[in-house]
Amino acid sequence: MEGIGDLTQYQLFVLALPILGAAISVFFGGIGSAIGIGLPAQVANGVLAEDPDMFGNLLILVALPGTQGIYGFLGAFLILMKAGFIGGDLTASLGAMTMTQAWMIMIAGIPTGLAGWISGINQGKVCATGVSMAAKRPEAMMRAVIYGAMVETYAILGLLITILMLNAITIG
């Protein structure tokens, strides 16, 4: 990243857009999972007060809304790779990337971020009620997990579109 001071206003903007896209992806996905894990984890703590042996069983339900954060991270990582910040030659891709492409890369971060944000929170709610259900009927725990996975579908589709969007962009 030497000589960043020599960049023109235009080049700086081209660089900043993919960064923004990566930030959107990881930030919103992360919020989704942070809230989403928080909800079942609180309920699970209450259950553990009664029966500490449930820890392992409930862990799956608590961890389930964590995927949105990972997808967000993944989307951000793919964006940074596409723009040449990671594992590539930044100077070369800076020369090759057009303003349109920079915008495209930025926008590609939105599906993962927003789908992860909303679905993470809602999956958290499903898992939280799943935890209270599993507390009463431990044998039905996997069913609650499947319901949680219903919500996760849309985070997965968001990530999928981010991947496809990024695949469609060729720099240079």
Binding site: A63, G66, T67, I70, M142, I146, G148, A149, M150, E152
Partner: peptide, 12 residues
């Protein structure tokens, strides 16, 4: 994390 995802989503 992915083995859990694989099981859950395949089941779904």
């Amino acid at each position: 994390i992915n083995a859990l995802g694989a099981f859950v989503h395949t089941t779904r």
